[in-house]
């Protein structure tokens, strides 16, 4: 199955307003993606619409967000259960800085339904770092039963490597790396699943960098996805010289 675990909807201040959950699901399905996550910056507010949209196209959804930690590292936190994702959202929203959204530099942040109707416009900038550390976000994600995956760890900004200089040893379900660097990172971290993701912000980017995952059984829950990710490390070992 093709999986793409990092996508931004119109709710993200840096994403195209065309990126409705409905359009993301439709485009992903057309590109053969089977497992797809919605990961807006520091908010899961478009995940209810994403659940409905994925149902229409028979996609397995993951509900999450890309959190900007206090260290300004971007990390993905992903749930198979919408309620858990919304609980994570409450935990973030309770402490999120309320910096007004500047529309000269960013786009509107609409919460929409599965039919692209606008329900609400969020007026504070969602990209701002939240006052929770990488470790604190990891713990809360685990507490709520989610997957914890640092985003584009070798990008030049907002990544674990750009902010900390290294990947702290820890409990990761996978690491997302910049396309083209998967083999190098598999050699460097043979015990970790190394994945790519589209990090889509506009329609053309949807489904551009998925990865293959084998999921056993019918119910594609977090446990099955975690096993599928762990199986990726078998490739690491076989390709390690």
């Amino acid at each position: 199955m093709l999986a793409d675990l990092h996508n931004h909807s119109c709710l993200s201040p840096c994403a195209s307003l065309e990126m409705s959950p409905g359009l993301i699901a439709r485009t992903a399905a057309a590109k053969g993606i089977g497992l797809i996550a919605l990961t807006d910056h520091n908010s899961t507010r478009n995940c209810p619409a994403f659940r409905d949209a994925c149902k229409r196209y028979n996609l397995t959804p993951l509900f999450g967000m890309e959190i900007t930690t206090t260290e300004e590292c971007h990390v993905l936190t992903l749930f198979d259960d919408l309620d858990a994702a919304m609980e994570m959202n409450r935990w973030i929203a309770a402490v999120q800085p309320r910096i007004p959204l500047n529309l000269d530099y960013y786009s509107d942040q609409p919460v929409v339904d599965a039919d692209d109707n606008i329900i609400e416009l969020l007026t504070y900038f969602l990209g701002q770092a939240v006052p929770h550390s990488l470790e604190s976000v990891r713990r809360q994600t685990r507490l709520l039963g989610g997957l914890f995956i640092p985003s584009h760890i070798n990008r030049h900004s907002f990544s674990v490597e750009s902010q900390l200089g290294f990947l702290p040893p820890g409990d990761y379900d996978a690491i997302e790396v910049v396309p083209g660097t998967v083999d190098a990172y598999r050699r460097r971290y043979p015990d970790l699943p190394v994945i790519t993701a589209s990090d889509s912000h506009c329609p053309e980017q949807i489904g551009t960098w998925p990865f293959h995952i084998h999921l056993e059984g019918q119910g594609h829950d977090i446990a099955a996805i975690r096993r599928g990710l762990m199986n990726l490390t078998l490739n690491n070992l076989s390709s390690t010289p």
Binding site: E72, P97, F125, Q128, A129
Partner: peptide, 8 residues
């Protein structure tokens, strides 16, 4: 060196 701090 923290852009969120600069922004705020």
């Amino acid at each position: 060196d923290l852009l969120s701090d600069v922004m705020a």
